[in-house]
């Protein structure tokens, strides 16, 4: 045992970079919602980038350490404290055996990544230590942490040690309003031209029910679907298709009212038309959106999407170089 959970926070889960390869069987990719921040947290403490960390959403846990360790907290501005004393985010710091890591109120963003030197030791399930709570799979007993849980580390080490930090320009967080770049998709031609224009010009707000499965947005104009003959086997709503596969990041608009962007714990298929897909480079940003945050979707083409993916990788390379 190396960490005892005094209070678990809201829905703190063990996550690594995810569980790709089983989505076609209905098992989602899971892993950190903001994998940029997750990788950086691991780099700061000297772990492999894909080590398992804790993802805390909106509210931090309170953790008692029973072994010395190096810790880094990245992502949301959820100020860490050691025995009540403030520590910097996006920086590594030491915790001694017997000390307690806790957090102040969330200031901005939504999800903080807590990396601990050595990495969290939970069984590997289908290639990953990530928690898929809806399926009771992976992570710590397939669920969010609870009071009095005891976490083990793969090794008790001080890793890269304290005092390492990431420059502010290398911390990637959404702006206000957040801008999510999206590529019109397979069923884009199903919606009217006006609705297509409105989708990208309206300011949407994150609905409070947004979670790891999907992020729902409200407040934009109703999305109108073109008149067309219902395909055989599709539901009766104009937004229904014959059941199909849902990609990670795909945008569906059930009933034309509130767009939902599927995220790491998404269902793998269903009967709603996907009007587009948020580009892979911006999926991290969604993980940092609080309820009611203003959000705009920005139309891009494939070339711009691939350039954005390249830019995100280049930014991670800069972080790696700065910590080497």
């Amino acid at each position: 045992m190396a960490i005892k959970v005094i209070s678990p926070g809201l829905a703190t889960t063990v996550q690594d970079l995810g569980r790709p390869g089983y989505y076609h069987l209905g098992i989602p990719i899971s892993g950190g919602m903001d994998r940029y921040a997750l990788r950086v947290a691991n780099m700061l403490v000297g772990n492999d980038e894909d080590a398992a960390v804790l993802e805390a959403v909106f509210m931090g846990p309170e953790l008692e350490f029973t072994a010395d360790a190096t810790v880094a907290v990245t992502g949301a501005d959820l100020p860490p404290k050691v025995d009540g004393e403030a520590r910097e985010s996006w920086s590594s710091f030491e915790i001694k055996a017997g000390q307690v890591l806790s957090f102040d109120y969330l200031k901005s963003g939504a999800r903080a990544y807590i990396a601990i030197s050595g990495g969290i030791d939970v069984p590997i399930v289908l290639g990953s230590r990530s928690t898929y709570a809806l399926g009771a799979l992976g992570g710590f007993e397939g669920r969010a942490l609870g009071k009095d849980d005891e976490l083990k580390l793969l090794s008790e080490t001080l890793g890269a040690g304290s005092g390492r930090t990431v420059a502010p320009e290398l911390r990637r967080l959404p702006g206000n309003p957040a801008e999510l770049r999206a590529l019109p998709g397979l069923y884009w031609h199903w919606i009217t031209e006006d609705s297509g224009t409105n989708f990208f010009s309206d300011t949407w707000k994150v609905a409070p029910e947004a979670d790891r499965i999907g992020y729902r947005f409200k407040g934009g104009q109703h999305i109108q679907f073109n008149e067309r003959e219902r395909p055989f086997g599709a539901g009766s709503d104009p937004s229904n298709i014959v059941d199909g596969c849902y990609p990670y990041g795909s945008i569906q608009v059930p009933g034309g009212t509130e767009p939902i962007v599927l995220h790491r714990d998404a269902v793998s298929g269903g009967g709603y038309a996907m009007i587009g897909t948020v580009i892979s480079a911006d999926m991290d940003l969604i993980g940092q959106l609080q309820p009611h945050s203003e959000t705009r979707f920005v139309k891009v083409d494939m070339e711009e999407a691939l350039a954005a993916r390249h830019d995100r990788r280049a930014l991670l390379d800069k972080v790696r170089a700065s910590l080497a």
Binding site: F58, M59, A110, P208
Partner: peptide, 8 residues
Amino acid sequence: VLSPLPGT
């Protein structure tokens, strides 16, 4: 009394 969480 402060709200511990963002939401409604």
